[in-house]
Amino acid sequence: MIWFKPSILSPSYADARLGWGLAAAAGLAAAILLLIVLLLLRESWPVLQRVGGVRFFADQGWYPAEEMYGLAPMLWATLAASFGAVLLAGPLGVASALFCRHYAPFSVARLYRRMVTLLAGIPSVVFGFWGLTVLVPLLAQFQPPGASLLTGILILALMILPTVALTADAALAAVPDAYLRGAAALGLSRGATIAGVVLPAARGGIISGVLLATARALGETMAVLMVAGNVVQTPTSLFDPVRTLTANIALEMAYASGDHRAALFVSGLMLMGLVIILAAAAWRLSGGRLHG
């Protein structure tokens, strides 16, 4: 009979207040996203209305002073740099997490985990500075100008490696012990256990970690700005200098006005769209069990 009187289950007003407080916090977090999209739309509206959305993909180049607003080259550059970095850092990060969880002696694993955590805390601009003063001149000796898609990918890969490694490590740790004992009882080798039991079980967590890393790579600005050369062009080789959408905003926002400024907000809108598409794709990839 007790469930006919729900008030007995939560007799205090404090509980109800907590509920409302939490709801307000959750609503605020969701509203921020909405507000950002609204702001981007409002600021970019004048230029979208005047020159139309198609021109941002169809124009031959990005010369705001000459009313040419082609963002497509920067879109490709952003995608190439991010996915290049994920291709490098993804397997490396997962492999290092597997080593740490299933092969390394306990003391080594603990030391390694501390170092990766530290690596994750290094500000991106430090990576960028190192890239500008060491990596770019080094590459310039073989393939001038040195500042290129490749240096961008390498710096981004360095930056997101700890994200992938740490989230993969956590996903592997979450695999139930019973699975491992079951595999051992069946006489599976360590390699077969990892391939047949551990990885499928940790798939959702690993994918969401890689997604997080991809989003970080897409949004990284200063480090890429310092090493990628910032020339607006569709990359045809790894040694081409490129400009990403984020670098475009950071380079020109302080110096832009009127339509130029509005066009930069369109860059922001496009980045937002990219992240949303990415999130949707990851959701589908993991079969809707992203956090399961």
Binding site: P145, G229, N230, P241
Partner: peptide, 22 residues
């Protein structure tokens, strides 16, 4: 036809100082 695009003077000076062909 640029190969590198820079923001401020300091970044430009560092870029040229690090590349003998710039």
């Amino acid at each position: 036809k640029a190969h590198v695009v820079i923001g401020d003077n300091q970044q430009g000076i560092k870029m040229v100082a690090g590349n003998p062909g710039a």
